[in-house]
Simulated scan of single mutants.
Amino acid sequence: MTQTLHACDHPTPEALYPFDARGVAKRFRHAAIFGALESLMPGETMRFCNDHDPLPLLAQMQQRYGEQVAIAYVQREPGAIVIDFKVLGS
């Protein structure tokens, strides 16, 4: 069995706020993610890490924030999903 390397397991020199959803209970994840995202100032980025592609979450974010949050995949492999959410402002 090979282990997939996960970009969140390695520190980066960039000034990003990591959010590792792998350690958050499923029933609390979306609320925790929205709370963390809403605490960011315009121009700040949250690096979201998960073990699966959170397509329903991304749809909710699009509805909730529209173009106020930029979404960019950093890593998109089975078992290793990393997405940067950058707050653009209102």
Rank of each mutant, 00 (worst) to 15 (best):
T4Y: 04
T4I: 09
T4V: 08
L5A: 12
L5G: 11
H6I: 03
H6R: 13
H6L: 10
A7Q: 11
A7V: 13
C8D: 09
C8N: 15
D9F: 10
H10R: 12
P11N: 07
P11S: 07
T12C: 11
T12I: 12
P13D: 13
A15C: 04
Y17K: 03
P18K: 13
F19L: 13
D20Y: 02
A21S: 09
R22Q: 03
V24L: 03
A25Q: 06
A25V: 03
K26F: 05
K26M: 09
R27H: 15
R27Y: 14
R27P: 00
R27F: 15
R27C: 09
F28E: 15
F28H: 13
F28W: 10
R29Y: 07
R29T: 09
R29F: 05
R29E: 06
H30C: 01
H30M: 07
A31F: 00
A31N: 04
A31K: 00
A31I: 06
A32C: 09
I33M: 12
G35P: 03
G35K: 08
G35C: 06
L37Q: 06
E38F: 06
E38W: 07
S39Q: 13
L40Y: 04
M41Q: 11
M41R: 14
P42I: 14
G43P: 01
G43F: 00
E44C: 01
E44D: 08
E44Q: 14
T45I: 13
T45V: 13
M46H: 10
R47I: 01
F48G: 05
F48H: 07
F48S: 08
F48A: 11
C49R: 10
C49E: 03
C49S: 08
N50A: 13
N50T: 09
N50L: 10
N50C: 11
N50I: 08
H52R: 15
D53R: 04
D53A: 07
D53K: 02
D53M: 06
P54L: 10
L55W: 11
L55K: 14
L55C: 09
L55I: 13
L55Q: 14
P56C: 13
P56L: 11
L58S: 00
Q60Y: 07
M61E: 06
M61K: 02
Q63E: 00
Q63R: 15
Q63Y: 01
Q63K: 13
R64S: 00
R64H: 03
E67T: 09
Q68N: 07
Q68H: 12
Q68E: 11
V69L: 03
V69N: 01
I71K: 13
I71L: 14
A72Q: 09
Y73D: 12
Y73P: 15
Y73M: 12
Y73G: 12
V74Q: 01
V74F: 02
V74E: 09
V74W: 03
Q75E: 12
Q75Y: 06
R76Q: 00
P78C: 02
G79K: 00
A80I: 05
A80D: 07
I81A: 02
I81N: 04
V82L: 06
V82D: 01
I83V: 15
I83A: 12
F85H: 15
F85V: 11
F85S: 14
K86H: 08
K86F: 05
K86A: 14
V87A: 13
G89A: 04
